[in-house]
Nucleic acid binder design. Structure first.
Length: 465
RNA sequence: GGGCUCGUGGUGUAGUUUGGCCUAACACGCCUCCCUGUCACGGAGGAGAUCGCCGGUUCAAAUCCGGUCGGGCCCGCCA
């Protein structure tokens, strides 16, 4: 007999079916046992009668939470008094005729069916595979999938091409600490995991793809927060022959379309408001203000574009560093401010650089990029790099722009953050299947772990101690 | 790198301020028995914690002190 999933059971009244799933809860009334059996699509109540098949009933008595079962039986409508309007399949039940225990289960370390149970995060992380069985977590992960699917569908219809870029890459100047991977074949040399596919996607524009995106894993070795993980997922996108208006337009339409489809109860502005960096800093003192009327209202999605970011900012030593990313094109007429030898002028320079803010979270940064290698060099020089250093760090990248680079620009919204906000979760860990804890550890596998001596020797690495 | 904070049966907490009435309490979970309509089933009984670890103060430490280990939050840092 073919398996029927919980979601399809109501259509099978009076029919004999087979279900597979986990024992969610058990209510033992002596001569009558109820099970809620759970599969990935929902729950169904199964009934065993003591007055019927003795052997079957005894076997049902052995069942405990989270046992994996296969049950055959007849779907029947419940009597009027037995209907439970508050649960899925509350008007039907399965009258069990056979039971196979496919796997037993030890008592889980925490209760899986109580949404309100305040279980500590460490124990949830240690047994994440069980935590993901809870309705809350399973729903988060499914909604994340739907968000990504809808995003892909939208961008596909807009003519974007999804292209994978390397994970084993070269250190990039994004500003965060890199994760390094030692090279066995080139002892003493290292790959860096990408902080973002920034340079690759710009080169894809040079390659002529014109519209690129990627659901891209990014890596940054910085201390964590509730909204920061060492590896996270961005919707990385880039377009050629566009100006800032084109990038904002397609992204605004993307978010409105996807969210309206998946979260019809959420309210968004028809047109996302815009403020310049200077305006937003003056008005809110933050470049990612929460502009909701009611800060507790999770159905209000207060999107905000922040534009015209500074090209440079001063670090503690008084040196100029890029405020956002070094590839952002200067605003019209601001090249002179960059070229000026007066630091005050430099700091006044603004870039075609924009953020998308949502309810106080920075969702995304983006910019129109520099496609003229000479302009790019002028930025690097102003940051204090000499010709030699520029050549060493960005030589290949700048070379590519000598071969007909189209004007281009893009964005990279953080998938984890937007799903966190849409799911109304307090941290991005709740929308990532297997996140790290605050110390960047995987409590389930105990990563990171030590490497064997032979492995290190092969890599030419000795641990200083 | 810095600051704050937490650690008590399987889980979540109370007790710590003011040491003794703690022979450590409660809820959930677990085990046994009873129960033919529950769906947070109900009822009766039971097991399970040397209070993270080490040391100190004291007649006496879950409680005070020092150290240490493990969590959590924040600042710095972070396209």
């Amino acid at each position: 007999m073919k398996r029927t999933q919980c979601i399809d059971i109501a259509e099978n009244v009076e029919k004999k079916i087979r279900i597979n799933g986990w024992v969610h809860t058990r209510r033992d009334h002596g001569k009558l046992i109820f099970l809620d059996v759970r599969d990935s699509t929902g729950l169904v109540q199964v009934v065993f009668w003591g007055g019927g098949d003795k052997e079957l009933f005894e076997k049902a008595n052995e069942l405990r939470s989270e046992y994996v079962v296969e049950i055959e039986g007849a779907v029947q409508k419940r009597g009027e008094k037995q209907i439970n309007p508050d649960v899925v399949n509350g008007n039907v039940e399965l009258a069990a005729e056979s039971l196979t225990i496919m796997a037993t289960s030890e008592t889980p370390p925490f209760v899986l069916d109580d949404e309100n149970a305040e279980v500590g995060e460490p124990i949830r992380m240690k047994h994440r595979y069980l935590d993901l069985r809870t309705e809350r977590m399973a729903n988060n992960i499914r909604m994340r999938h739907k968000f990504i699917k809808a995003t892909r569908d939208f961008l596909d219809a807009e003519g974007f091409v999804e292209i994978e870029t390397p994970i084993l890459a070269k250190s990039s100047p994004e500003g965060a600490r890199d994760f390094l991977v030692p090279s066995r074949l080139s002892p003493g040399e290292f790959y860096a995991l990408p902080q973002a596919p920034q340079q690759f996607k710009q080169l894809l524009m040079v390659s002529g793809f014109e519209k690129y995106y990627q659901i891209a894993r990014c890596f940054r070795d910085e201390d964590l927060r509730g909204d920061r993980q060492p590896e996270f997922t961005q919707l990385d996108m880039e377009m050629s022959f566009v100006d800032q208006e084109d990038v904002l337009e397609v992204n605004e339409r993307l978010f409105k379309t996807v969210i309206a489809e998946l979260y019809p109860e959420k309210r968004m502005p028809d047109k996302f408001p815009r403020m310049t960096y200077d305006e937003v800093m003056e008005k809110y003192g933050s470049d990612k203000p929460d502009i909701r009327e009611d800060k507790e209202d999770n159905d209000e999605l207060a999107f905000l574009w922040v534009t015209d970011f500074p090209v440079f900012e001063e670090n503690e030593g008084g040196e100029l560093t890029f405020a956002h990313n070094p590839f952002a094109a200067p605003a019209k007429g601001h090249q002179e401010l960059i070229d000026s030898d007066n630091k005050e002028d430099n700091l006044k320079a603004r870039a075609k650089c924009y953020d998308l803010v949502l309810n106080g979270y920075e969702l995304s940064s983006g910019s129109i990029r520099i496609h003229d290698p000479e302009v790019q060099k002028s930025i690097f020089k102003r940051m204090g790099l000499n010709e030699e250093q520029i050549q060493e760090q960005f030589g290949e990248f700048l070379d590519a722009f000598k071969y007909g680079a189209p004007p281009h620009g893009g964005m990279a919204p953080g998938i984890d953050r937007v799903v966190m906000i849409l799911q109304e979760e307090p941290t991005i860990r709740e929308v990532i299947a297997f996140p790290k804890n605050g110390d960047m550890k995987d409590l389930m596998f105990n990563a990171p772990g030590q490497a064997g001596l032979d492995q290190l020797t092969e890599l030419g690495i000795r641990i200083a101690s």
